[in-house]
């Protein structure tokens, strides 16, 4: 059996292997309560990674996701007393618009996505600082529970975050596999010149992909801000690296075209297990970033499709 045949199955094999290793090292890890708490904790990151999947699926990258989520924590906290549940709509809309602008700058103005999203991230950071007055803001506890309490409660012993994550992965999975937009994404990711030749409106599809990425980054920020009951321009710092790692470890290569949201689900769980295993093996928290950086390099090196890159710049 060649490596190419095993490759698509590597993510879930890795996940099972990691769970088994950590489970053997410490049986407490496998207690359902522990696994559920671990899954609930990772949901905001998972939502951001879901969005990132769309940007990477078409061969781009979204480096603004963290700044957009940061901005959303502030937007949510500021608009909650004004609009109530409508605050969620404001958040989602602002994420969508920022993502769409990144997409427009990338496709119409021909600025590579890692630069355009970095720049839009700067704009989002400025907006967050302006809206927050450069302070950490707190939500009114009563108002939060009345409006968004349903996001963080739990039913049948399962935290609601998990339901939100499951709902979003179903929606994005439907979007990816059962709609023309999803098919078009695949076409663009697999080979952009061919998609253009086939008559697809590639620019529109790519703009939409970045918009979805921005939207989901905003949802991640909203959920995170409700969880922590507040917002600040740096609240979601530290999300970007694990989000990219989750997508790539899951098996969506940097070159796009294969993989997808289910891969990202597996990738996020791998990230979650690595994180908690560091606790069990008593690896210092300060080493986490190094470990994830190295995991990222390994994941890219294993998954990237080098036939698509004639010259690696």
């Amino acid at each position: 059996m060649s490596f190419e045949r095993i490759k698509p199955h590597l993510p879930w094999i890795t996940l099972l292997a990691l769970v088994a290793i950590v489970g053997i090292a410490d049986a407490n890890f496998l207690r359902p309560a522990n696994l559920i708490a671990m899954a609930a904790d990772i949901v905001p990151l998972f939502i951001m990674a879901l969005g990132m999947t769309f940007a990477i699926y078409i061969g781009g990258i979204d480096l603004s996701a963290q700044s957009v989520a940061n901005m959303t924590t502030v937007v949510a906290t500021v608009t909650l007393p004004l609009f109530g549940v409508g605050a969620a709509l404001v958040c989602i809309l602002s994420g969508f618009v920022l993502g769409a602008v990144s997409g427009y700058v990338t496709t119409k103005l021909l600025v590579p996505s890692f630069i355009s999203t970095l720049a839009i991230g700067g704009v989002a950071f400025s907006a967050a600082q302006y809206l927050s007055g450069q302070r950490a803001l707190f939500m009114d506890a009563e108002l939060r529970d009345a409006t968004f309490g349903w996001m963080t409660g739990s039913s049948f012993g399962i935290p609601h975050e998990i339901f939100i994550g499951a709902f979003l992965v179903l929606v994005t999975w439907f979007l990816q596999t059962r709609t023309t937009f999803g098919r078009a994404l695949k076409a663009v990711g697999a080979g952009e010149p061919a998609a253009v030749a086939a008559g697809l409106d590639v620019a529109k599809i790519k703009i939409m992909a970045f918009a979805v990425s921005g939207l989901l980054a905003a949802v991640a920020g909203l959920l995170f801000s409700v969880k922590l009951s507040g917002g600040s321009p740096t609240l979601a710092n530290g999300f970007l690296l694990p989000a990219i790692v989750a997508v790539l470890v899951g098996g969506t290569p940097l070159t796009g075209g294969v993989g997808g949201v289910i891969n990202t689900l597996i990738g996020t769980l791998i990230v979650a297990v690595i994180r908690s295993s560091m606790l069990y093996f008593e690896v210092d928290a300060t080493k986490q970033q190094m470990v994830f950086g190295l995991v990222l390099i390994a994941a890219i090196a294993l998954t990237i499709d080098r036939t698509k890159l004639r010259i690696v710049k």
Partner: peptide
């Protein structure tokens, strides 16, 4: 490792 420079260097 033939990884595009923006990603290799970011990591």
């Amino acid at each position: 490792l033939k990884i595009p420079s923006f990603m290799a260097s970011l990591a």
